[in-house]
Amino acid sequence: MEQAHTSFQVAAGRMLSVSNWHAYSGAGSAKFVLCNNQGEEVDVLAEEGFFISIDLPGPGPDAGDGVEWVLIEKLVSEGGAHTAEEYVLMTVRPAADPHKAAAEIAHFYTDESTSTFIVRRDGLVVSAGAHGRNETPNNEAVDLHDKIRNTAIALIARVGLSGGQWQKLVNGLIEFKETK
Score class of each variant (00 low, 15 high):
I156E: 15
V10N: 12
G60K: 10
L173V: 10
F8Y: 13
N20F: 10
K168G: 08
G28V: 15
A63F: 04
S127C: 04
A103D: 13
G39T: 10
K177N: 10
E178L: 07
Q165I: 06
V142Y: 14
W166Q: 13
L161N: 10
G163F: 12
R158V: 06
A63M: 00
G60E: 05
L161W: 12
L173K: 09
W166D: 02
G64Q: 09
E140R: 13
N139F: 12
V70C: 02
E112Q: 13
V142C: 15
E78T: 02
D43R: 14
L45I: 05
A157V: 13
E85Q: 12
G39V: 12
G28A: 11
S19M: 11
K168A: 15
L169I: 15
L71C: 04
K147T: 13
H22T: 14
L34N: 03
K177F: 03
V76R: 04
S29G: 08
D143H: 09
A130K: 02
P94H: 03
M90V: 09
W69H: 06
G80M: 00
N138M: 15
E73S: 04
M1I: 07
G164N: 08
A46N: 05
F117W: 08
V10K: 13
N37M: 07
D122M: 09
A46K: 06
N37S: 15
S29L: 11
A12E: 01
A11M: 11
N20S: 15
G164R: 12
P59N: 13
E47N: 04
R158Q: 15
M15A: 05
S17F: 11
A157M: 03
S77F: 04
W166A: 11
S7W: 00
T110S: 10
E104M: 07
A157T: 14
I118Q: 07
A152Q: 14
E40P: 03
P61L: 00
A152P: 02
Q9H: 01
I52L: 06
A23I: 09
M15T: 04
N150G: 07
E40H: 12
M1D: 01
S113E: 03
L45P: 04
V70E: 04
P61C: 10
I105P: 03
N139P: 01
A152L: 15
V76H: 05
E47L: 06
S25Q: 01
V18Y: 01
D111W: 02
G13Q: 11
I148A: 15
A12R: 02
I52P: 02
D55H: 10
K74S: 09
V119T: 02
G26K: 04
I52F: 01
I105R: 05
F108R: 04
I148Y: 13
K180A: 14
E175N: 14
L75V: 02
P98I: 07
R14S: 05
W21M: 03
G80T: 08
K100F: 05
V10P: 00
R120D: 01
L155A: 14
E104Q: 15
V44C: 12
S17L: 10
A11K: 06
G172V: 12
H5R: 00
H82D: 11
L16E: 02
P57N: 05
G164C: 11
V159H: 07
N20G: 11
L124M: 11
F176H: 14
E40W: 08
F176T: 05
Y87N: 04
